[in-house]
Design a protein around this nucleic acid. Sequence first.
DNA 1: GCGAGCCATAACTATTATCAATACCATGTC
DNA 2: GACATGGTATTGATAATAGTTATGGCTCGC
Lengths: 314, 314
Amino acid sequence: MSQLPTLRQLQFLIALAEHGSFSRAAEAVFVTQPTLSAAIKELEMILGTVLVERGARGAALTPAGEVVLERARRVMAEAEDLVIAAQAAGEPLTGPFKLGVIPTIAPFLLPRVLPALRALHPKLEVFLREDLTDRLFDALRERRLDAALVALPYEATMIETKAIWSDEFLFACPPDHRLAGAGKLSPSDLADEPLLLLEDGHCLRDHALSVCSTGSARSDFAATSLHTLVQMVKSGLGATLLPRMAVDAGLVDQMGLAVLPFDPPVAGREIGVAWRKGSARAEEAIQLGEAIRASLAPGEKMQDGLATASGTAG
Amino acid sequence: MSQLPTLRQLQFLIALAEHGSFSRAAEAVFVTQPTLSAAIKELEMILGTVLVERGARGAALTPAGEVVLERARRVMAEAEDLVIAAQAAGEPLTGPFKLGVIPTIAPFLLPRVLPALRALHPKLEVFLREDLTDRLFDALRERRLDAALVALPYEATMIETKAIWSDEFLFACPPDHRLAGAGKLSPSDLADEPLLLLEDGHCLRDHALSVCSTGSARSDFAATSLHTLVQMVKSGLGATLLPRMAVDAGLVDQMGLAVLPFDPPVAGREIGVAWRKGSARAEEAIQLGEAIRASLAPGEKMQDGLATASGTAG
DNA sequence: GCGAGCCATAACTATTATCAATACCATGTC
DNA sequence: GACATGGTATTGATAATAGTTATGGCTCGC
């Protein structure tokens, strides 16, 4: 095997590429310019290729240098992941943990879950970010998040998920609605019912639509949150589907709405954790999901299951 | 950013895991045992975690050590890829290049292509391996191959492909066959024609079947190579589809078979290069494909196209 | 209880990474 | 054309560290 470069040399190359000059790059990595010069020169010798074009107005990477730069970034990222994974393996669920949550889950789940989580893992510092699934997954892919709580199923590449909870849909309508008196519903009851839904981008909209394949959304109105959605239902603009989690959290309390369950097999969505495939904190993400599940249903135990890959390659 | 470990330390950890003892691992990486001991100890200090259980009968990794080991392997693989990519970028298509080829391409394409390739890239040393697509793709994923020549389309994860040539199908039958006199064929002519095909595992079998969706294979006989296949056709056992490339290479010369083309749009398969997604030699694989295409059709130029990902994630 | 095998420690050495100082080189300004 | 400016390369001294040999101590199997 030919000689390998040093992580330090790769780090220097990255700094050089970012600052466009030996001297400024050296400053950025807290060494003197000759040190960095020598390191780059040795890197070039190891690789047998000129990586940098030295000029009077600074330094620029050669095409080969660009290729190596990209690889160097990957090596550094893997190395950093190793450190994180080691710390996580040594003492799981401690330290800062960046968790994304979708808006149709966050306000209803977190108040129940966060106190229990703090009690269970006092050293864990959960940083929250609320956003749509797409943007959360982007953040996972770019390592800006460690895990996310989302609704499943959801197609995505480079992302793995594990379901932790089933969230049943309930039908909500004004008290004078034709279905308000029905005991239980089946999806076919909604065949010609135009539903009020959240605006595009919310996965709840798609999951609700998939319940009633023949049903349609009212295209003239779309709510921006579940809270405004129930206000619209209360105003008599139509009916909608709500996740039980939100109803249990008091979303429709004292609203005077009729809320009806579905006959089994109940319609609903799965709530799950998601993480970047290969993430250093994948194991912790699963454990976090398990902790959340436990705090939702103390006593019960979910059957073990392998993490399922939503993407097909990686 | 916390302190990073050294590639050397990771290399030592890998050796330690593989040999199960400090002293033997040290021998394997050509250092003395105290050196390796100190390196592992420092690695543990950097990561803040005990990685190795020292015992009188050797050393074993802790669970955290196993996690770090897996990560370390990834880091090392990335670092090695960097070296390879640098060399490839500095002087593309030189040195050893491990190329896989499927059996329905190799005997007909290589005699035409290899001499031209040697002329074009004298420093390139092509090591060939002939195998079925599945096994070639496995080898690509495990880095045992740099690229492969296969027939497309073919579903696979972690693999990217680029088409370089269209290989038309020709219908071959005994001279007394009912279709032997037809000028040109359309796929519907094969509706009730039981075809002789290669045995399972050969992609040519599937590609041929996909031409005539209603056609069926003779399940009692399956050939192991195109050469035995034409022998079977000659014996009057039935008809088959052959790639033009094989016919052009003389597969049916002096066999006394009827060989008929299809009406446009002609049926066929694409021949393309495949490489592991993220491979250090991806660019070279594309260039190799281009060189092969050029040697097949001097003068023509294929339109530029981006490499297409067969997998959906990476 | 003793030898074999194995890891840890200590003291020393060789290597190399780093620094401060300086030489050198291209470019734009007066 | 002399000159300041902003950059890289070179040099020689020094500090840090990775490596070695020698040794000690531990556990296990006989």
